[in-house]
């Protein structure tokens, strides 16, 4: 009875200690020192239970769970993930030259190029009329939302050089970039909206193309905001009669559907 009790305790302790994996040796030592005192019996020695090694193996497996990262790093393509499969290292393929994705036909020349014709037969720019082929009205109805969107986009992309008021004194200019054009001088006040679109799309002077950063609709929105900026920066003491902002009639901002209150128009801003 006593012997059985001691053996039970011994096994039990070993099992518990095995769970944490330490001090097992000590207990085994106890068992070893204990055994010689116990009279040999056909039931001893007890065959080692397979449970302990299996348990330890499971614990070891648990520990190694973090070692494989197949789920974290799956062999699939995500943005900016390169590949060794293609020679150029890009995981995405370029469309075949001349392919036009659905919805990208861009037949609206004025909207997508800011040019009246955009073809080679277009009127050439001359000294008197440097912007002969540029459209001089917005190719869509300018609303308050357009101007607000334009302001947001202007503050992201243009303000760095052209400055908050459009005077061409943005932070990058202060850091040493060539002085950006001021929207508040006569040349640009008179320039048609198509010229601005051309400059944003293809660059102008030291200004690079922003076509990759600014979608077409946003470019027009920015131009609408530039017109608003120009009106806001008008000198109230300017000579009477001098047409402040693009004097042409209808003005570049005059567009069907634009409410006078919502969109700045030459008539609204022409108080001088």
């Amino acid at each position: 009875m006593r012997r059985k009790l001691v053996m039970w305790k011994s096994e039990r302790t070993e099992g518990v200690k095995g769970a944490t994996g330490d001090a097992v040796k000590v207990r085994r030592g106890d068992a070893a020192t204990m055994r010689p005192r116990v009279p040999a019996s056909p039931r001893l020695p007890v065959p080692a239970s397979p449970r302990l090694p299996v348990f330890l193996l499971l614990v070891a497996l648990l520990i190694t769970i973090g070692c494989r990262r197949d789920m974290q790093d799956q062999p699939k393509m995500k943005p900016y993930r390169g590949t060794t499969f293609f020679n150029d290292g890009l995981s995405a393929r370029q469309p075949i030259a001349g392919t036009i994705p659905r919805g990208f036909l861009r037949t609206d020349t004025e909207f997508y190029t800011g040019k009246k014709s955009g073809s080679s037969g277009a009127p050439q720019s001359t000294a008197e009329n440097p912007f002969a082929d540029d459209v001089d009205t917005f190719p869509f109805a300018v609303t308050e939302e357009t101007v607000k969107r334009g302001r947001e986009r202007y503050d992201i992309f243009c303000v760095v050089c052209h400055g908050m008021t459009g005077n061409g004194d943005g932070m990058i200019v202060r850091r040493g970039f060539r002085r950006a054009a001021s929207f508040n001088d006569d040349r640009l006040r008179q320039a048609p909206v198509g010229h601005y679109f051309d400059a944003i799309t293809n660059g102008w002077g030291a200004m690079p193309s922003y076509a990759a950063q600014i979608p077409v609709q946003d470019r027009w929105a920015i131009i609408a905001y530039i017109r608003a900026l120009q009106l806001s920066q008008l000198n109230p003491n300017a000579q009477p009669g001098a047409s402040p902002v693009p004097g042409a009639t209808p003005g570049p901002l005059a567009s069907p559907g634009a409410s006078p209150a919502a969109s700045p128009s030459p008539s609204a801003g022409g108080h001088d």
Partner: peptide
């Protein structure tokens, strides 16, 4: 989106 090298060069062609 990560900027293209051209975006860096917008300013750093001069600065």
């Amino acid at each position: 989106g990560m900027p293209s090298t051209n975006t860096c060069m917008s300013c750093h062609r001069q600065i």
